[in-house]
Design a protein around this nucleic acid. Structure first.
Lengths: 194, 194
DNA sequence: GGTCCATCGCAGGTCGACTTGCGTTAACCG
DNA sequence: CGGTTAACGCAAGTCGACCTGCGATGGACC
């Protein structure tokens, strides 16, 4: 007698098809179950792939999640050029803040912190990549004479973005427009009376 | 025949004695083996205590390490009062930076980020506790007329401390006097030409 | 100094991350 | 379109975090 249940042909996806299936499953689980729910076993099962295969391709769970997140989360954070530094910075960091309050944004940030031991390099290339481009706004402001000539572009970016990251990672305090505006204005005008 | 090895009397420390022994062992392992080496089993063994007892008292490995670190690392970060905001801020954040580059400081920061799910509260009470006191310096500066009356003390503290935390957690960039000075001056004077 | 109970020690177990060896097959290449 | 091989499936196992039940004892209290 033929088996009543066709035993679901193993599909046996491999190569790029398998990669995409796993990454999609990872993002799905990440969104529905949260960071803790995205177990390597669970992701593999959801993707119809064997757990071993996942480990062979990604090595660690961290790599897997990081890959899934950075692949799907290609929020490119455009660098505006309105002609005024303040407006540029406001637009850029508001976009950053909106990205960071996302479940995926938070997860990506959290994971960027993990990498303790092996391969000390490649630390948070995702974020630094995005922030490095932001110095353009500052440079343009300097050229326009809006900012002092000796302004350190990177430092200014750090001073505004730092608190945003810290709020997500440590304090858990909210990220809103008011915060971004306050940080940008502080970095531009300083706390001393003008 | 009497047993040649006296089988090391189980000691059976309990209560406060046991607590201190475990915490000390944890700090020892943390310093010598790093974060990854401070296994619950290893800490228990080093303290001459059963692993189960550790779990009963601390619940999770994270709690244990956090307790050990915050207990030993009572670097109180004194809030200076020199009469000039800039000097106060410089002294305070230099001390913070020196604490953060420590192996224990880094470990404590990293662990402060972990707490994903259970008990959403008590997030980084260690750091916020210390930074909350720092607003005093800013308030005094405002009263002295050194800073604008509408200065947000907390925001200023965040703008300077944020980048320090982020460098330890994400970018791995160095923390030195130059950085601290740059951040303090940016927060005080702003990037716009005076 | 005897009693009692919270605190421990201990054995055994679950679960997820990660590894290894071996058999099997999909996919690309000629 | 047949062959080769790297890419999978699968079984079995290690290791650390964390839990559970039970028996034993340290210590405080009377």
């Amino acid at each position: 007698m033929s088996s009543p249940e066709p035993v679901a042909p193993p599909l046996r996806r491999r190569g790029e098809r398998m990669r995409r299936a796993v990454l999609a499953a990872a993002v799905d689980l990440l969104s529905s179950q949260g960071l803790a729910g995205a177990t390597v076993g669970a992701v593999a099962r959801a993707a119809g792939v064997h757990e071993t295969s996942v480990y062979r391709r990604w090595g660690t769970r961290e790599n897997l999640i990081l890959d899934a997140l950075t692949t799907e989360l290609d929020a490119t954070l455009p660098v505006p050029d309105t002609g005024r530094v303040r407006d540029d910075l406001l637009a850029f960091f508001s976009a950053l803040a909106r990205l960071l309050v996302t479940a995926q944004g938070r997860a990506l940030l959290r994971l960027s912190v993990e990498q303790d031991d092996a391969l000390e390099d490649r630390r948070g290339p995702y974020w630094s990549e995005r922030l490095d481009r932001a110095v353009l706004m500052v440079r343009r402001g300097v050229e326009r004479g809006e900012l002092a000539a000796d302004t350190d572009p990177g430092l200014l970016i750090e001073a505004v973005s730092g608190p945003l990251f810290v709020r997500v990672l440590l304090s858990g305090a909210p990220l809103d427009e008011v915060l971004v505006r306050g940080l940008v204005d502080l970095a531009l005008d300083g706390a001393r009376p003008r």
